[in-house]
Design a protein around this nucleic acid. Structure first.
Length: 575
RNA sequence: CGGCGAUUAGCGCAGUUUGGUAGCGCACUUGGUUUGGGUCCAAGGGGUCGCAGGUUCGAAUCCUGCAUCGCCGACCA
């Protein structure tokens, strides 16, 4: 490609609404432009990167035995009603009507459509197992789109679905897909981790997420420094402490805390160390037989944080977790949030393991502007249950028994699930088994955020000059940058000749034939992240040489013109 | 959904306090100049100042409403 016949669209200045580095660089490098919040146009070089991701994904999916197909974005509402998700999914499901006022959804995922397809087309156990996939546009009306294509309302996803007659068969395919995902992220040159994950709204039992490690990641992941254990923090178990509770040595006393309603303020104004106090969070309890929801108190150590998933999994707690409204708290307890504690409550109290071994601690007195010191379990609070309801913190022992936990941030780029029969049962998808009887299908599903990978890769590969693409992702492999070509008679011929030879050799080459000064061209090629740049200038031409620059290493190499194409092709293919 | 902020040329911004015919830099066009890391000079093109209403002789500027975009929060009491 010649830049004079291309849309490079690079920007010197960073558009003001781009917050994270990948978003800024994608705009500056001319990869994307925003159409509206969460909606992006992919420019030619952005699209090339997107296609590179798709190519690797397709190759590994095919290798894993999956078969590609394509389903519609627009999906009839009745399928979603059948699975129950028309009501469950909430406003993230973008709903539309056709001219006859029939309701449709713009697909955020395709479990319903694929299950409907399979129940119609797959009739016999002899056709199983089968794994089908597509690379397709998904629509999710995100509450808050942000970070460019990282969390967009319309995005490209690879989604695969597998169908089986047994859990064992599903597990085998699940493992195969797990391996295929590792291959994909490996080939894309990303620093990633598979982690144990929650199944969320998709449903099912076993699940793993694949995270690209990056500071800007929206998820926290915990992993052991002594084993392979890794989990999304929302799923990481906090082991019950081995130490026992100390004896009570202080009496229960109140002290005035008019200006302190948070752990931080207690520390700043009263010198209470966070790990010597507890925080008490009031949520709604599970509904009783009359659909009435009472209140439940959750107690964690002051320096710990509540884990929503763990809390709502508790039988006494309403799921999904919902904080009690202030008015309800005042009505039941007589104090506002900020002065709450477990002493003397007439609602169920669930205490985290770590809080349950504390002695002589500080807690709210359930009276505005007052706290207790010297609180002790059993003596001051008699009725409570103990459970794991907190998020793990760095240094906690790993649940696997080996090593301690480290915590890092990650961008979720893949998620695989063992769904079981959730969709096949609600949508009645079965096949005729060996025994001649109908048998329910067991399902797995496997997603990769294709467009998100592009942004995640930039988060991991950039410097002050711009993007440093891993070879598999680069929009062009090689840039030809001639020095002052328009003033020379030798350079145009040589540049042209090399350009054609690289093209013939199958190298994706970008020939910068603009009438620009060298600095402009260097800057653009570096911003765009082209892995190799071939510099052709009068200076080296006198020695019959050209210069090759490596974007990632910064190294420069002088090559004889006659051998340049061969040597560069070798270098590129060796990578 | 709550709080905060923004909206002026393709991009980045000033002008709004104190109302008086709309500016700067980059980009773009033309000519010249320069040429191995975002040259310099000159001349140009491009804006219903987010939208609607109001106040006023006169509104980018003041008032009201709306829209869009962004940030923070929406569990840590």
């Amino acid at each position: 490609m010649r830049t004079s016949q291309y849309i490079l669209a690079t920007l010197k200045e960073t558009p003001s609404d781009a917050e994270i580095i990948s978003h800024q660089l994608m705009l500056r490098a001319g990869m994307i432009r925003k159409l509206a919040s969460g909606l992006y146009t992919w420019l030619p070089s952005g699209l090339k990167v997107l296609r590179n991701v798709e190519k690797v994904v397709r190759e590994e999916m095919d290798k894993a035995g999956a078969i590609e197909m394509l389903m519609p974005v627009i999906q009839p509402a009745d399928l979603w009603q059948e699975s129950g998700r028309w009501d469950q999914f909430g406003p993230e499901l973008l709903r539309i009507s056709d001219r006859n006022n029939r309701p449709f959804a713009l697909g955020p995922t395709h479990e319903e459509v694929i299950t409907d397809f399979v129940r119609k087309e797959i009739n016999s156990y002899k056709q199983l197992p089968i794994t089908l996939y597509q690379v397709q546009t998904k629509v999710r009306d995100e509450v808050r789109p942000r970070f460019g294509v990282m969390r967009a309302r319309e995005f490209t996803m690879k989604d695969a679905y597998s169908f089986h007659l047994s859990e064992d068969c599903l597990s085998a395919t699940y493992e195969r897909m797990h391996q295929a995902y590792c291959n994909i992220f490996e080939r894309l040159g990303l620093d990633y981790r598979p982690v144990i994950a929650d199944t969320g709204s998709i449903g099912g039992s076993v699940s793993h997420e694949f995270h690209v490690l990056a500071e800007s990641g929206e998820d926290a992941i915990a992993f052991s420094d002594g084993s392979d254990y890794a989990a999304n923090i929302e799923k990481a178990e906090a082991l019950a402490p081995t130490e026992t509770r100390a004896e009570a040595s202080k009496t229960l006393n109140t002290f005035a805390t008019p200006e302190a309603s948070t752990i931080e303020q207690l520390k700043a104004k009263h010198g209470v160390k966070p790990h010597r106090g507890v925080k008490t969070i009031i949520v709604y309890g599970a509904a009783d037989e009359n659909e009435q929801r009472g209140l439940v108190a959750l107690v964690v150590r002051g320096d710990h944080s509540l884990n929503e998933l763990k809390a709502q999994a508790h039988e006494l707690v309403h799921s999904p977790l919902e904080l009690a409204k202030e008015a309800d708290i005042i009505a039941a307890i007589g104090a506002k949030p900020g002065s709450l504690g477990p002493v003397g409550l007439n609602i169920p109290v669930i205490v985290d393991h770590s809080a349950a071994i504390m002695a002589d601690f500080v807690a709210g007195a359930n009276k505005d502007g007052e706290h207790y010191s010297g609180v002790n379990w059993d003596r001051d609070v008699t009725d409570f249950t103990v459970a794991d309801i907190r998020n793990v913190v760095e240094g906690d022992p790993s649940p696997c028994g080996k090593g301690v936990l480290q915590i890092m941030r990650g961008v979720e780029v893949g998620h695989i699930f063992q769904l079981g029969t959730k969709y096949s049962e609600s949508m009645n998808a079965g096949v005729l088994g060996e025994n001649g009887k109908n048998q329910m299908l067991t399902m797995g599903c496997y997603g990769i955020g294709v467009s998100r990978i592009v942004a995640a890769a930039i988060e991991q590969n950039n410097d002050d000059y711009g993007i440093k693409w891993p070879t598999a992702l680069a929009p062009f492999t090689l840039a030809i940058v001639p020095m002052n070509m328009h003033k020379s008679h030798r350079i145009p011929d040589i540049a042209d000749k090399l350009y054609n030879e690289f093209k013939a050799a199958g190298i994706d080459v970008l020939f910068d034939d603009r009438k620009e000064r060298p600095g402009v061209m260097f800057n653009d090629m570096e911003l765009l992240g082209v892995p190799y740049t071939l510099v052709i200038g009068e200076r080296n031409l006198d020695n019959n040489q050209v210069e090759l620059k490596n974007r990632r290493t910064g190294k420069k190499l002088m090559l004889d013109i006659d051998q340049a194409v061969t040597e560069i092709c070798n270098a590129i293919n060796a990578n």
